[in-house]
Amino acid sequence: MSILVIAEHDNEEIKASTNNVVTAATNLEGDIHVLVAGSNCSGAKDQAAKISGVAKVLVADSPEYEHCLAENIADLIVAISADYSHILSPATTNGKNYMPRVSALLDVAQISDITAIESSDTFERPIYAGNCIATVQNSDSKKVITVRTTAFDAAQNDGSAEVVDLQESHNLGISEFIKEEIAESDRPELTSADVIISGGRGMQNGDNFKILESVADKLGAAIGASRAAVDSGFVPNDYQVGQTGKIVAPNLYIAVGISGAIQHLAGMKDSKVIVAINKDEDAPIFQVADYGLVADLFTAVPELDAKL
């Protein structure tokens, strides 16, 4: 049997998280097929065909898939699921939205947010905000899995897969896209950035994030935030790093004015190098930081900026 990977894309481009999931899929036995479901998605289709290790790209190009509404995508995936032993998606907000729907329709359990594959039926996944790692064995005939993308390297883009057009129409008509407010940014995406600088409640207001932006420009970094900074309205929700925000693992994570609550650590403690700047020497963030600087951020960050 083959393995089906559901692509994350914006119709024009494939997101790097798809490449991470393809790498995860190479730990399983079988050809890897990638499903690109979208509308006017030939850009994404062409890129998917180049992902190394992919044998076949299935394309469902139709208006009802444009905004990845869970009801329609889930029905489509179920309709083509017969030949697959494993169905994998990245644990993005899209994947988290449609995959449990797919598994319930197939009457199988879902294994969420896996970080390692031990065998075709046994997986590791973090629970309790990453304070425990559970090894889970699943007995269903089909495995429906979401993948924590930071746990797997991205597959290269030097392949050339066969492309097959699907004639599948699934429009349940019970949900409708109205609008979206997607932040436009020249910075790298949080989940695939090499360097991240994040601000917390210690930043005091949204304006002060400018001092982080300047450092981010020099380091080619993405900007993140704690929940407190998002809840206080300093920055938008898509900046949130943590158990209930984005999970990141860059080479360098700089936490500024963040105390280091378990829920925040859950989202960044797999970073390669962690730097913490905090004026409270007892802040828990220092327990996970490789380099801690006990200082007022309003002097330390501009100084850091000047020295880069």
């Binding site: 905004h67 907000t93 949900s175 407010e181 938008p236």
Partner: peptide
């Protein structure tokens, strides 16, 4: 209005 990776999405459901 839903919190999604890129920002916010608004949908209408029956």
């Amino acid at each position: 209005t839903r919190e999604v990776d890129g920002g916010l999405q608004t949908i209408s459901v029956n």
